[in-house]
Structures are given as structure tokens and as C-alpha cells.
Design a protein around this nucleic acid. Structure first.
Length: 944
DNA sequence: GAGCACTGC
């Protein structure tokens, strides 16, 4: 704590600061400041009145944010000038109305009126959207037999629409909407007013009723029921149709034009299509078209460095199509993310002027939107990899474009080597690798010195400021920086990169507390957290533009780095960390570690501020200390499924496979060992019949072995459900902070009735109960289950079901024989066995390693079972087994006699005679070696 | 008594 003396001194200093503007400005001699790389721009920075974080942090809170008085008034004026209100109407309204200058109270009223209008309009839009959806479905599903579920969905939509239509006449009720009393009363406006906007969006909706958590939940679930297209949170009026794109969509770097991607809606989109076609000519890539085509004709492999906003992803396939490449075969373009594949395809379909799924289509898991006519096909990289399994030479393609190659996903890395190989046997095939600047040279070298071609992008300059020394508590620095930006920088939203949910929540509380402390002297800050596990309806808030006069502060995980784009960001605060998952092949354990980001990531994050105008990036680190690129996934992943895939493609020498960055040998060997143990590979390392069946399932090899193994135990129906549930990970149970006890009770309900229900069986029960309620979201809500995850599990299960059929495994059900189900689980997971030790911890049977039951498991704290099978190991604060089920040791011998020998399990129930002989023999052995091994040895002797 | 970033088939 600071002494009052110190405080006084600092206050004094700060008073001086206030008087001398030079002091307030950035002082270039202070080395703890954010620094600008380019010295000359520091001048400009001073103009902006940028003040050092240090300086602000030294000041007592009450004064801290009052200091830049001159600046703040100047800034405020400046920011008003910069308001992007085209007609200046808002400004006029703020200052005068009918010649009368408005008070802040009157402005507040005006704001409310506008809000009402907005809500009313929004409802109208949503209803129209629903109508469009129904029309689309009628058109798309014409003559198609719908499944029962689809039919129910469709009827629900139709009913909803008719209901809404009916009430539309009485819509004037909207006028009855009111702001919660607490915020409306005079006298307490000051404090409340600041949160009014925030509260409104949280708690009110069209009808003016408060939205209960339940309603929000249901709304969220209903939203998820349909896929929507579009790139950004923008809307557009076309022929009386209003399209609202507010889904959580992926970034379409290339759609830098004003027209946003949209689903084609019959003939009404003609103008959109025409406009879209015109826009093409304004993209930076347009001028390079002919040169690019010439190069592609001449070079089989081309590395393209297309900067953000160049238009490469949407344009190159069209150029190729125009040049006649599609006569020989399709043009395939891979994307690392589903939404990207979908939205780019939709955009291109619009530009070409065809219906999505006809000449232009996309293919992603669970959704194939292509037809025989499709010549331009966007897809996820994993999808192309799957296609390679059935079409090893990619005969139906004339060009393959691997987009965003620098992201180095597991699939792209494998694709590199495979397409490189295919290109050798197919001279007519063209390969285009699109990458970021940093890795272009590496790609070129890998593809035998392929030509590199640069297409400039279109984006705004980003000013990068940095701190020379990292902070011990960067969260505190982040918060100070947020307020510093808020105080001294012109209008524009702030994006903060944090590592995870917990950190985001902490930052949110701290920011709010600090805001309270500061009182009303600043305009409002709206805090929007975003991370992938956040329910969708809460995620949507991030895309709503901040009301005039306020500033949005987005607290995001890495999700905002590539997966989604938020409009209006002008400032990025980047502490320089993220969580990276790594797999230790030696222990078979996964761990999520907070690590420094790479230079490439740092650039990507900084670029997030320069999408709609010049931006600023505040780095809490020095970029020169970073590694150039992130370690590619292939070097830190469990490779079992990679090896199996390669083997099934007929690649014998996986160890010397032409990886761009070879994975560690131990990881490959571990994968081999496992696959051999599972029976997927034989002694020579060749793929077996079992392996061939396993590779059909798009799941981890242990899971696919479990499925294949279920045939024997007549419980394939139960097993695919368990496999699907395990595949969605640990996001099935939902545990809100304020209802943890209730949530835990709800979860434990799935463990009762029978003894020793493990986590696997519990997951099965969850799914079946959900199914019994006809996939009710209400039921999910009541039982603290995430319906998002359940729907995903249903999709995966449906897919597995289809594959079961394909490889000829009969669908059999054996719901009451838990032993059979457990045995089937063991058929895939027998290497994951653990035995209870005296101190309550567990020990892996085949590896000398102590592990624990995960606290989220239903077995945690229960009377311990002697033998467990677990799904995976994670290293957090301890070595935990996640998803565990009790089993019998003799099953290990029964199911995997090649893997377990009697001695592995024998000391499970030491008999009297054994114990005595043990004692006898151990006494003979060196006393230092009184280990388990000696025990095991002796017990074996005893058996003999 | 923990705590999961983000993708993908």
C-alpha cells in the first residue's frame, strides 16, 4: 500500500502534469511507456495526447482520469466531429432540437425513443427473415422427402410466423415498452444512466417485457436451429427485403467491399448479384488478373501471398473458371473453418449469379451443398483430406487452392504433402498455396522452389505501440490501458485479447468496479466478453454497434484473432499470451498452457484494429522477443489418427513422410504402438482389416476401435451414442457460477439407480433422456445440459450411424447389459486402464504414472472403484483422468490378451498365500527394491 | 475440489 505521504506527493506531481501539457504528452525518454517503432510518428502521437500508462497508473484513481482535462474536452469535440453520422443528425439532435438546446435528460429521452424505433424495426426484420426462411425451405425442399425432425422444425417455423403475423396489427403495444424503473427515476440517474444502454440490451426486448434467463436460453436454442450466412453484422435493403446478418460468422477477409455476403433469395437478389459483380472490379486483385492467369498456366505450383482484403479467396477461382479451367475439372478451394467455406461460397455464388449449391457450392462436415453442376467448390481442409481417401488422385479437380495455408492446421499440413505427391503424377493439375508473407518463402522451398506472387491488400495503417518490459500483472495494465484509451483517444471500440474464460470474467469485474469508482465523468463503456463457450445469444451482443457516445470494450480469447470479425474496432490491446494445447507423447497427456504468442499472431491481432479505419495496437510486450511463428499443430498433437489416415492412403514409410515440419519421432512411434495395440496395424506396420474399418469413422482411433468392437458385444447403438457424446468434449454439462450446487445435483441424477455408473454410461443416459423428450431444449435447460453440445452430438451420432451401415456393422442394442457396454468401451480404451492405490490415487497399469479422478467426474468422491478405464488424461493442476468408468481387471485379459498379461492384474486381490509368499520372497530381495515390480514378480512365482 | 484456447472430419 502506498503511504499517504506518497500519495500526496504523487497528487502533487500529477497536478503539475495537469498544468504542463508537455508532461501530459508522451515523454520519449520514459522507457516504460508504450513506444512507437517509428520515431517520427511519435510526434503525431503527441498530437493525439497519448499519455503514458505509467503516468496514469501512478496517479490516485480519483485524479487519474481527470487529468487530461484539456485533452478530454478537446478529444470529445474531436470525437464528435469524427462521428460517422453522415448527416450530422445525431449531433444536431444532441445540441439543439427546434432551435432549443437539449439537456442531458432530454437527450436521454431522445435516445429511448430511438431505441424503441430500433426494436420495432428489428422485430419487423426478424419476421421477414423468418418468412424468407420458410420460403427458402419450400423452394429448396421441393420434392424432397423430409425427415420427421425437419418436418417438425419446419412446422414450428411456419406456426411461429403465422402467430407473429397475427399479432403484428396490435404491434402498437411496443409503445408500452418501458425502461426498468430503477433507471428511470430522477435523482439516481447519474450512476444508473451509465449502465442504461447496457442494461437495456440485456434485459429488454421487443415486447418490453424483461427477458428471463429461460427465454434467453430458448431464444438462443431457436437461433441455433438454422444456419445463416453472411459476413458481418450489417444489414442491407434489397427490393424491399431486409437481410440481417447477425450470426456468429467467420471472417471473410476478401469481402472488403460494402455489399455483404448473403444467401441468395430467388429473383429478388438480382440487384445484389449485379452489384456484387460490379464490385469485383474494385478489388485490388483485379489489376493482376491477367498476369496471375499467365503465371498459373506456366507454373504448376504457385505460392500466392495475398494480403488481407486483396480479394484472393473469392476472385481467383472465378478467374480460373473464366479462363476455362473448369472444363477439365472442378476448382477446389480449402478453408480452415466451416463458416469461412460457407460464407465465401455464398458470396461467390452471388457474384457469379448462380444459386448456391449449383455451379458454386461448398462442402463441410454434416453439410454438402454441391451438385453435379458444381465447378467451384469451397470446403474445409479436413473435408478434402477425407475426399482423398476415396479419390487419391483428385481426378475430378483441375485446380486445388489451399487457402490460409499459414494457419498450418493438422489437415493442411497433411494435405501439403499429399497434393505435392499428386501433382507429380498429374501434370495437368494446378496447385495454388495461399499464405501470409512470413511463411511464403518456406512454402516455396517446400514445393520445389515454386514461384511466389504477391497481391497487395487493402487495409488501413495500424500504429503499433509497445511496452519494453513485460508486466508482472498484465491484467492490471490492460485495465489501465482501456481507461487511457477511453480518456485520450478518439471514438472507436477496443478489443482486448485475453487467454480464457476465467481471465475474461476477472477483467470484466475489475473494469466494472473501476468504472463505478470513476463516477460519471466519462462517457459509458460497454463491456462485451466473447469466447467460444459463451452461449450464442450472449455472443451476439459483441456485434451490436455501440450506441453513440459510448465505447465498446470487447474482451476476447483467441476466437477474435481469426475466427470472427467485429466491426468498429480501432484499438487493440494485446498482452501477448494465449493458451496452447500440447500433447506429450511420452505420457499421453494433454495440457493447456498459457504461452507467449508468435510474431505472426501479434501481427494478426494488430491487424484487427485496422479493418474499418486507421487503428492503434497497444502491445504489452516487445515483439522482438517473440518466436516468428506458432509451432504447427502437427508437432504438438496426438498423431494416432494422422498415422492411420496416411496408412490407409497407402503411405508405408510414415516416418519419412514428406512433412513440411516433421513431428517428433516419439509422437509417431507412440501412434504406431497404439495402432498396433488396437489391431489397426499389423506387425509389419501395414493396415489391417480392422484398421480399414476404423478409418471410415471420423473420430479418434480409440473411439473408432470402440465402435468396431461394439459389434461383438451387440451394443453398437449404445456405443455410437457414447462415442458421439465423448467427441463433443466436456461441454455437455453446464455449470453456471451461481447455481453450481443445483447443476451438480442435476448431473448426479444420471448416475443413480444402478451401482457404479461411470461417466460413459452417464453420457449415454443424458443422450437417451434428451432423445426421449424429443430433443427438448427445455429439458436441457432444466437439467443443466448445453443443448448446443447435444445437437452437435446428435449430428455426430447420425453420421456414425450412417457409417455403421456403410461398413456393415449391424445396429444392435443391449441397453441393460452394462457389462457388455463397458467391455465394448474397453475394446477401444484398454490401454487406458488404471488401478486404485492405497492412498486413494490411481496408477496406470501399463505406465508407471500416478493419476487422479477428475473432479468433474461422477466417480469423484464416490466410494472408489478398484479398476478404471478412462477416456483421456489431462494435465491441469494434477494429472487427471477425464471420463472414467469402473471395470473388471479380468476383462483386460479377455479383451486384450496381447497387451495385458496376468501379472499386470494379478496383485489386484492378493490372497493370503500370495501375501505370505510375497513377504517371504521380498525378504530375499534387496530391500531397496521393495517395489511393485518385485511384488508382481513374486506373485507370479506364487501362481506358478 | 477443478477451471477448456481455437479448429476440423
Amino acid at each position: 500500500m502506498e503511504s499517504s505521504n506518497d500519495l500526496e506527493k504523487k497528487t502533487h506531481e500529477s497536478a503539475e502534469d495537469m498544468n504542463s501539457e508537455d508532461q501530459v504528452r508522451t515523454s520519449s525518454s520514459d522507457e516504460n511507456l508504450y513506444k512507437n517503432r517509428e520515431g517520427e510518428e511519435e510526434e503525431e502521437e503527441e498530437e493525439e495526447g497519448f499519455m503514458s500508462v505509467e503516468k496514469i497508473s501512478r496517479l490516485p484513481v480519483s485524479i487519474k482520469f481527470n487529468i487530461p482535462k484539456k485533452i478530454s474536452t478537446r478529444k470529445r469535440r474531436k470525437s464528435e466531429e469524427e462521428d460517422d453520422d453522415p448527416n450530422g443528425e445525431e449531433k444536431k439532435a444532441k445540441l439543439s432540437f427546434g432551435g432549443k438546446v437539449l439537456s442531458s435528460y432530454e437527450i436521454e429521452i431522445l435516445r429511448k425513443v430511438r431505441r424503441r424505433k430500433y426494436l420495432k424495426d428489428r422485430e419487423k426484420k426478424k419476421v421477414e427473415e423468418l418468412r424468407d426462411d420458410i420460403e427458402d425451405e419450400i423452394m429448396l425442399n421441393h420434392g424432397v422427402k423430409l425427415t420427421e425432425r425437419e418436418l417438425i422444425d419446419f412446422r414450428f417455423k411456419k406456426e411461429l410466423y403465422e402467430l407473429l403475423k397475427k399479432t403484428e396489427d396490435n404491434d402498437d403495444d411496443v409503445e408500452g415498452y418501458r425502461i426498468p424503473d430503477a433507471y428511470d427515476r430522477e435523482g439516481c440517474i447519474d450512476q444508473k444512466k451509465r449502465f442504461a444502454v447496457v442494461e437495456q440490451r440485456y434485459s429488454e426486448r421487443k415486447s418490453g417485457r424483461g427477458v428471463t434467463e429461460q427465454e434467453a436460453w430458448e431464444d438462443h436454442q431457436a437461433q441455433k436451429a438454422r444456419v445463416r450466412f453472411g459476413a458481418k453484422d450489417k444489414q442491407q435493403v434489397v427490393d424491399g427485403y431486409e437481410f440481417v446478418f447477425d450470426d456468429l460468422t467467420g471472417l471473410v477477409e476478401e469481402s472488403s467491399s460494402e455489399v455483404e455476403t448473403g444467401r441468395q433469395r430467388g429473383c429478388n437478389s438480382k440487384t445484389v448479384a449485379e452489384k456484387a459483380r460490379e464490385e469485383r472490379e474494385f478489388l485490388p486483385i483485379h489489376g493482376y488478373r491477367d498476369e496471375l492467369l499467365k503465371l498459373i498456366a506456366k507454373n504448376q505450383v504457385l505460392v500466392i501471398v495475398g494480403e488481407t482484403g486483396s480479394g484472393k479467396t473469392t476472385q481467383i477461382p472465378q478467374y480460373l473458371q473464366e479462363a476455362g479451367y473448369t472444363k477439365r475439372g472442378k476448382i477446389g478451394c480449402t478453408q480452415p473453418r466451416r463458416v469461412a467455406a460457407m460464407s465465401v461460397a455464398s458470396r461467390v455464388a452471388q457474384e457469379v449469379g448462380v444459386k448456391l449449391g449449383h455451379e458454386v457450392g461448398y462442402s463441410i462436415r454434416f453439410e454438402d451443398c454441391t451438385s453435379d453442376k458444381t465447378v467451384i467448390k469451397y470446403m474445409t481442409d479436413g473435408m478434402l483430406l477425407r475426399e482423398l481417401l476415396t479419390e487419391p488422385k483428385l481426378d475430378s479437380y483441375s485446380v486445388i487452392i489451399i487457402d490460409e495455408a499459414h494457419e498450418r492446421t493438422l489437415s493442411t499440413d497433411i494435405l501439403f504433402a499429399l497434393v505435392k505427391d499428386v501433382a507429380k503424377v498429374r501434370p495437368d493439375l494446378r496447385l495454388i498455396i495461399s499464405s501470409a508473407t512470413l511463411e511464403a518463402k518456406k512454402f516455396s522451398e517446400y514445393f520445389d522452389s515454386a514461384r511466389i506472387y504477391l497481391i497487395p491488400g487493402r487495409r488501413y495503417p495500424v500504429e503499433k505501440l509497445y511496452r519494453r518490459w513485460p508486466d508482472a500483472d498484465y491484467l492490471e495494465t490492460v485495465i489501465r490501458t482501456v481507461f487511457q484509451i477511453h480518456q485520450t483517444e478518439p471514438i472507436g471500440d477496443v478489443l482486448v485479447f485475453l487467454t480464457g474464460q476465467e481471465e475474461i470474467e476477472r477483467a470484466e469485474t475489475n473494469l466494472k468496479r473501476r468504472m463505478m469508482d470513476l463516477g460519471t465523468k466519462n462517457s459509458e463503456i460497454i463491456i462485451c466478453p466473447i469466447y467460444s463457450n459463451l452461449p450464442t445469444e450472449l455472443q451476439a451482443k459483441v456485434f451490436e454497434p455501440a450506441p453513440k457516445g459510448s465505447r465498446k470494450v470487447v474482451l476476447a480469447t483467441n476466437i477474435a484473432e481469426t475466427s470472427l470479425t467485429i466491426e468498429g474496432i480501432r484499438y487493440v490491446i494485446d498482452p501477448g499470451y494465449c493458451k496452447i494445447n500440447s500433447y506429450n507423447p511420452r505420457t499421453g497427456m494433454e495440457s493447456l498452457l498459457v504461452s507467449p504468442i508468435s510474431k505472426a499472431s501479434a501481427e494478426q491481432r494488430a491487424g484487427r484494429s485496422g479493418r474499418t479505419g486507421p487503428g492503434k495496437c497497444f502491445r504489452l510486450y516487445d515483439v522482438k522477443n517473440l518466436e516468428p511463428t506458432t509451432i504447427p499443430e502437427i508437432q504438438r498433437a496426438n498423431l494416432a489418427s494422422v498415422v492411420l489416415t496416411l496408412k490407409s492412403l497407402g503411405i508405408h514409410d510414415v516416418l519419412n513422410f514428406d512433412f513440411m515440419d516433421p513431428p517428433p519421432e516419439t509422437a509417431l512411434l507412440k501412434a504406431f504402438e497404439l495402432l498396433y495395440a488396437l489391431g489397426a496395424l499389423d506387425g509389419k506396420g501395414e493396415i489391417t482389416k480392422v484398421g480399414e474399418r476404423m478409418v471410415e469413422f471420423p473420430v479418434d482411433p480409440m473411439l473408432s476401435k470402440m465402435i468396431v468392437g461394439s459389434e461383438k458385444y451387440k451394443c453398437s447403438k449404445e456405443i455410437i451414442t457414447i462415442a458421439a457424446m465423448l467427441s463433443v468434449g466436456n461441454s455437455v454439462f453446464y455449470r453456471p457460477k451461481n447455481q453450481q450446487l443445483l447443476a451438480d445435483n442435476a448431473r448426479m441424477n444420471f448416475y443413480v439407480d444402478t451401482e457404479n455408473v461411470g461417466d460413459h454410461i452417464a453420457l449415454l443416459r443424458v443422450y437417451n433422456s434428451w432423445k426421449e423428450t424429443n430433443y427438448s431444449t427445455q429439458w436441457c435447460y432444466e437439467n443443466f445440459i448445453q443443448s448446443k453440445s447435444m445437437k452437435r452430438a446428435r449430428d455426430i451420432r447420425d453420421q456414425l450411424l450412417g457409417l455403421l451401415n456403410k461398413i456393415g456393422i449391424e445396429l444392435t442394442s443391449n441397453p441393460n447389459d452394462l457389462d457388455a457396454i463397458k467391455k465394448a468401451i474397453l475394446a477401444g480404451f484398454f490401454p487406458h486402464s488404471a488401478k486404485l492405490q492405497k492412498n486413494g490415487s490411481y496408477r496406470r497399469v501399463k505406465e508407471p504414472q500416478t493419476v487422479y479422478v477428475h473432479p468433474n467426474s461422477g466417480l469423484f468422491g464416490a466410494s472408489p472403484s478398484k479398476w478404471l478405464v478412462y477416456h483421456e488424461l489431462v494435465l491441469t493442476t494434477k494429472e487427471y483422468m477425464r471420463h472414467t468408468t469402473e471395470m473388471k481387471p479380468e476383462w483386460l485379459i479377455e479383451i486384450a490378451p496381447h497387451y495385458y498379461k496376468l501379472k499386470d492384474i494379478e496383485d489386484s486381490r492378493p490372497k493370503k498365500s500370495q501375501r505370505s509368499s510375497e513377504r517371504a520372497s521380498t525378504s530375499k530381495v534387496d530391500t531397496n527394491k521393495k517395489t511393485r515390480t518385485s511384488k508382481v514378480d513374486t506373485s507370479k512365482k506364487a501362481k506358478r
